[in-house]
Design a protein around this nucleic acid. Structure first.
Length: 522
DNA sequence: CTAGGGTTAG
């Protein structure tokens, strides 16, 4: 057009600028801007908004600001872009202020502010605004519903999710791919796989098979990740198999989830096959895929392959490095884990709370008491990370291995963590290590106070009482077990379950009866 | 012209 001297209209130019925005093509867009000025196309508010959005999206805030201030006519879209820009750059206060000063609020502005609050971690405020929007009488559109469902997932509020699903149906809005995927994801993250599958299975009503639209592919990967998230591994494998059979795109999202399922289930052979698939399909070994593969190999007992994957990646990504540190820890290679951690810090990698779980696990498995204590302090004092249950259990085990029970009691008192079952469980395993029955008795009593439903400590304690012939206390513990509904599970061997799954994967024409019989409780 | 969907380490 430029070469042929054709003068484009505003509509064409807005579309071109939209392209530049989504591709983040700052140079090309600027060229278009210059061209508009040279050719003398009249700016209307729509074209100026497109240009404004383009500069915001390409993070050229100087030009954006200049344009915004020079705009004579501004409409609600202009303000919407402005509020969105503040939210994207973490200027939440300014965005809320601007939002409050808007006279007539249309549905898009509500969507922008609520979504922006969610993305900046202000979920509760976002929820308040959602209620305010209802009170205000602004009708939800399909975008509002999508955003609301993301919020529900984060809050894990299934009841609210069901209410919103009901409102979607009542509203008469067409459930498109976007909305369907938001519903699926919400039900998955709230642990309601039955409903997630119900929504998922309605998909064929809207899409033909093998269409491989992006919506369809996302529905499949959402369902897979949901099954993995909820520990329904064999169903995840089954779904993955039917994806292959139906020729649905297997993208990096589904692969990553299924690799993580292999890790949790310890099925090395399938893990290897999926790894082969990754190579065959030419997926890039990014942080997501890399860390899931490292984790899978390590958890399947194959540290060498985990290391090999780690070497193939060349990314200073904290999740990637953490999974390698944790893999060393898992294999009792404390020194190497610590060395890798030290090296990553020297390269400027910022560790997070999970990284420290890995490092503390490494120290506790290798008996590196001094180092563990140092890292625990480093975490709090230098990185400002508040220790959580996972950190405390490692610290307790670290002291416990060294036999420093007094130190453990001190930590529990100082931090006020008597209510954490995991902490007492960790303490208890140290007692077992040192064969300290007296201490085990005391710890078990504390664990029982936390109303744990694990049979272990009840049985242990009643056995200790039995040895001491304190029959009344034996009866008390047994009574407690009954009243709390604690059940002793007959032990099912890991290997046995694994072999069943393995047989099932290798032969996907296995009898349906067999699938149903497969035991899930581990 | 603006606002919306799925993945990794614990």
């Amino acid at each position: 057009m430029q070469n042929e001297g054709i003068k484009p209209n505003q509509f064409t130019l807005s579309s071109v600028l939209k392209c530049c925005s989504s591709l983040s093509e700052l140079k090309i867009g600027k060229g278009v801007h210059g061209w508009i000025l040279r050719v003398g196309v009249v700016f209307d508010v729509i074209l100026e908004n497109a240009l404004f959005y383009f500069y915001v999206n390409c993070e050229d805030f100087g030009s954006a600001k200049w344009l915004f201030e020079s705009m004579e006519e501004k409409n609600s879209v202009t303000w919407n872009i402005m509020i969105g820009a503040y939210l994207d750059t973490g200027n939440v206060d300014k965005a809320v202020d601007l939002f409050r000063r808007q006279g007539l609020k249309d549905v898009s502005i509500w969507n922008t502010i609520i979504n922006g609050l969610i993305r900046n971690g202000f979920e509760r405020i976002a929820l308040k605004l959602l209620y305010e929007m209802v009170k205000d009488g602004t009708l939800f559109n399909e975008v509002t519903f999508s955003i609301a469902l993301v919020l529900v997932s984060l809050l894990k509020d299934l009841e609210l999710g069901k209410q919103i699903h009901g409102r979607v149906l009542l509203s008469g809005i067409h459930v498109d791919g976007f909305l369907r995927n938001s519903l699926i994801d919400m039900y998955c993250k709230c642990g309601e796989m039955k409903m997630a599958l119900k929504v998922f299975e309605k998909m064929d009503t809207y899409f033909g098979r093998n269409e491989n639209s992006i919506e369809e592919v996302i529905s499949w990967s959402s369902i897979i990740s949901g099954l993995v998230l909820n520990g329904e591994f064999e169903d995840a494998f089954k779904t993955f198999t039917s994806m292959v059979r139906k020729d649905i795109d297997i993208d990096a999202f589904s692969i990553t989830s299924i690799v993580s399922a292999c890790a949790s289930f310890g099925v090395l052979e399938l893990g290897r096959q999926v790894h082969g698939l990754v190579q065959k399909m030419g997926h890039k070994l990014d942080a997501h895929l890399g860390s899931s593969l490292i984790d899978m190999y390590a958890k399947c007992g194959n540290l060498d392959d985990a290391k090999r994957i780690f070497k193939q990646t060349n990314d200073m990504n904290v999740v990637l490095w953490t999974s390698m540190v944790y893999s060393y820890a898992l294999h009792g290679r404390g020194r190497e884990a610590v060395q890798l951690f030290e090296f990553s810090m020297s390269r400027g990698l910022l560790p997070n709370e999970v990284t420290f779980i890995g490092v503390l696990t490494a120290c506790s498995h290798a008996g590196l008491l001094e180092e563990g204590c140092r890292y625990f302090r480093l975490m709090k004092e230098v990185y400002g990370i508040k220790p959580g249950v996972e950190h405390f259990t490692r610290m307790v085990y670290l002291y416990g291995r060294a036999g420093q029970f007094k130190e453990i009691k001190k930590v529990i008192d100082e931090k006020g963590i008597h209510h954490l079952r995991a902490v007492w469980r960790s303490f208890l395993s140290s007692c077992r290590l040192h064969r300290d029955i007296e201490m085990a008795e005391w710890v078990s009593e504390n664990l029982l106070r936390c109303k744990t439903l694990d049979a272990g400590p009840y049985v242990l304690l009643s056995n200790i009482y039995a040895i001491k012939q304190r029959w009344e206390e034996v009866a008390t513990v047994r009574g407690l077990m009954q009243s709390r509904g604690v059940k002793k599970h007959p032990c099912e061997s890991w290997i046995q379950i694994r072999n069943q799954v393995h047989a099932f994967i290798m032969d996907d024409r296995s009898h349906p009866q067999k699938k149903r019989d497969m035991c899930v409780s581990i």
